[in-house]
Design a protein around this nucleic acid. Structure first.
Length: 571
RNA sequence: CGGUGAUUAGCGCAGCUUGGUAGCGCACUUGGUUUGGGUCCAAGGGGUCGCAAGUUCGAAUCUUGCAUCACCGACCA
């Protein structure tokens, strides 16, 4: 490709709307352009990268025995009513009507369509197991699209669905997909981790997310420093401390604490660490529709954070987790939010494992403007349950039993889970078994965010000059940068010759034949992130040489013109 | 959805306080100059100042409404 016949569309300045580095570089390097909030046009260079990612995903899925299909993006509402998600899915599901006023949705995922298909196409156990996938545009009407294509509303996704008669069979395919995903991210050249994940609202047994490690990631991942244990912080278990609770030595004493509300205020006021204070959060308990919700107290160490996912799974607590309003707090604890404490509360109390071993601690006194010191469980607080309701923190013991946890940020680029019979049951998908009986299928589902991978790859591979593509997904493998070609026949001849030879050898080569000064070309090509550059200039032609420059290492070397093509092929 | 801020040429911004012919840098076009890291000089083209209503002799500027874009947002108890 010659730049003179191409759409480079690079930008010198960073558009004000771009926050994260991948978004900035995707705009500046001419990969994408915004169309509306969360919607992007892929320019030629961006599309080349997207297609490369897509092809690697496709090849590995095929290799793992999955079969490609393509389902419609617009889906009839009745499929969603059949599965129950027409009401469950919420406002992320974009609903629309056709000219006959029939309701449709823009597909955020395709469990309904695929399960319906399977239920009509499969009839015998002999056809199982089967794993179908597609690479297709999804639409989710996100509350807040951000970070460019990282969290767009429309995005390209690979989604696969497998069907089985037994859990054991599902486990096998699940493992195959796990390995296929590892192969994919290795081929993409990304630093990634499979992590144990929450199964979310879908339920099911096993679930793993695949994260690309990057500081700008939206998820926290907990790792063991001495095993391969890794889990999303939503899921990582905080083990009970192995220390025994100390004996109560202090008297329960009420202290006036005017204008002291937050944990920070309290620890400053008493001059103690946040870990010596207890915080009490009031949330709504489980209740029937229309009934008044009971209130439940959650007790945590002052320096720990509540894990909502863990909390809402505890029986007696309403899901989704809902915090009590100021009025509800007043009614139950008879005070403002800043002075709640577990001592003397006549409601259900759930105490975090780490808070449960504290003794002689400080907590709210359920009277506005007062706290207790010297509070103790069992003596001052009764009828409580101990549960794991906090987020793990760095330094906690790993739940696997080996080592301590460290925490890093990750970008979720893949998610595999076992769905069980939920959809097959709702959509009536079953086959006849060997004994001639109808049996409902069990199902697995496996997603990869193809367009998000492009952004994640940039987050992980860039410097102050621009993108540094891993070779596997670079839009071009090599760029030819001629110095003042329009003034030198020798430079032009050499550059044209190399371009022809590289093209003939099947190398994806960009030939910067613009009538630009060298600095402009260097800057543009580094911004776009082409891994290898051949610089053709008068001064090296005298020795029958050209310069090679590596984008990642920045190293330069001189190579014989005759060797150049082979040299590039070997990179 | 709530809070905050923005909207003036393709991009980045000034002008608004104090109403009176719409500006700067980059990019683009033409000519010259320069030539191994975003040259320099000159001449040009490009804007219903987000939309609508109002105040006024006169609105980018003041008022009101709307739209769009962006950032922040339970972890406070």
């Amino acid at each position: 490709m010659r730049t003179s016949k191409y759409l480079l569309s690079t930008l010198k300045e960073t558009p004000a709307s771009a926050e994260v580095i991948s978004h900035q570089y995707m705009l500046r390097a001419g990969l994408v352009r915004p169309v509306a909030s969360g919607l992007y046009t892929w320019l030629p260079t961006g599309l080349k990268v997207l297609k490369k990612v897509e092809n690697i995903v496709r090849e590995e899925m095929d290799k793992a025995g999955a079969i490609e299909t393509l389902m419609p993006m617009v889906q009839p509402a009745d499929l969603w009513q059949e599965s129950g998600r027409w009401t469950d899915y919420g406002p992320e599901l974009l609903r629309l009507e056709d000219r006959h006023h029939r309701p449709f949705v823009l597909g955020p995922t395709h469990e309904e369509v695929i399960t319906k298909l399977i239920s009509s196409e499969l009839s015998s156990y002999k056809q199982l197991p089967i794993n179908l996938y597609q690479i297709q545009t999804k639409f989710r009407d996100e509350i807040r699209p951000r970070f460019g294509v990282m969290r767009g509303r429309e995005f390209l996704m690979k989604d696969a669905y497998s069907f089985h008669l037994s859990q054991e069979c599902l486990n096998n395919t699940y493992q195959d997909m796990h390995s296929a995903y590892c192969n994919i991210f290795e081929r993409l050249g990304l630093d990634f981790r499979p992590v144990i994940a929450d199964t979310g609202s879908i339920g099911g047994d096993a679930s793993h997310e695949f994260h690309v490690l990057a500081d700008s990631g939206e998820d926290d991942i907990a790792f063991s420093d001495s095993s391969d244990y890794a889990a999303n912080i939503e899921k990582a278990e905080a083990l009970a401390p192995d220390t025994e609770r100390g004996a109560a030595t202090a008297e329960l004493t009420k202290v006036a604490t005017p204008n002291v509300h937050t944990i920070e205020d309290v620890s400053k006021f008493f001059d103690v660490a946040a870990k010596d204070v207890v915080k009490t959060l009031l949330v709504l308990g489980e209740h029937e529709e229309g009934e008044t919700a009971p209130v439940v107290a959650l007790v945590l160490r002052g320096d720990h954070e509540l894990n909502e996912i863990k909390a809402e799974k505890i029986s007696g607590i309403a899901a989704p987790l809902t915090f009590a309003t100021d009025e509800q707090i007043k009614a139950v604890a008879n005070c403002d939010a800043g002075s709640i404490g577990p001592a003397g509360l006549a409601i259900d109390i759930i105490v975090d494992r780490s808070a449960a071993v504290m003794a002689d601690f400080i907590c709210g006194a359920n009277e506005s403007g007062y706290h207790y010191t010297g509070a103790n469980f069992d003596r001052d607080i009764h009828n409580y349950k101990v549960e794991d309701i906090r987020n793990v923190v760095a330094g906690d013991p790993s739940p696997c039993g080996n080592g301590k946890l460290t925490i890093k940020r990750g970008i979720e680029v893949g998610h595999i889970f076992q769905l069980g019979e939920k959809y097959a049951d709702a959509m009536n998908a079953g086959v006849l078994t060997e004994t001639g009986k109808n049996q409902t299928l069990t199902m697995g589902c496996y997603g990869i965010g193809v367009s998000r991978i492009v952004a994640a790859a940039i987050e992980q591979n860039h410097d102050e000059n621009g993108i540094i593509w891993p070779d596997a997904i670079a839009p071009f493998k090599v760029v030819i940068i001629p110095m003042n070609m329009h003034k030198s026949h020798r430079v032009q001849e050499t550059a044209e010759k190399l371009y022809a030879e590289l093209t003939a050898a099947g190398v994806e080569v960009l030939f910067d034949d613009r009538k630009e000064r060298p600095g402009v070309m260097f800057k543009d090509m580094e911004l776009i992130g082409i891994p290898h550059a051949i610089v053709v200039g008068e001064r090296n032609i005298d020795n029958a040489e050209v310069e090679y420059k590596n984008r990642r290492s920045g190293e330069k070397s001189l190579i014989a013109i005759d060797e150049a093509v082979n040299f590039v092929l070997n990179q």
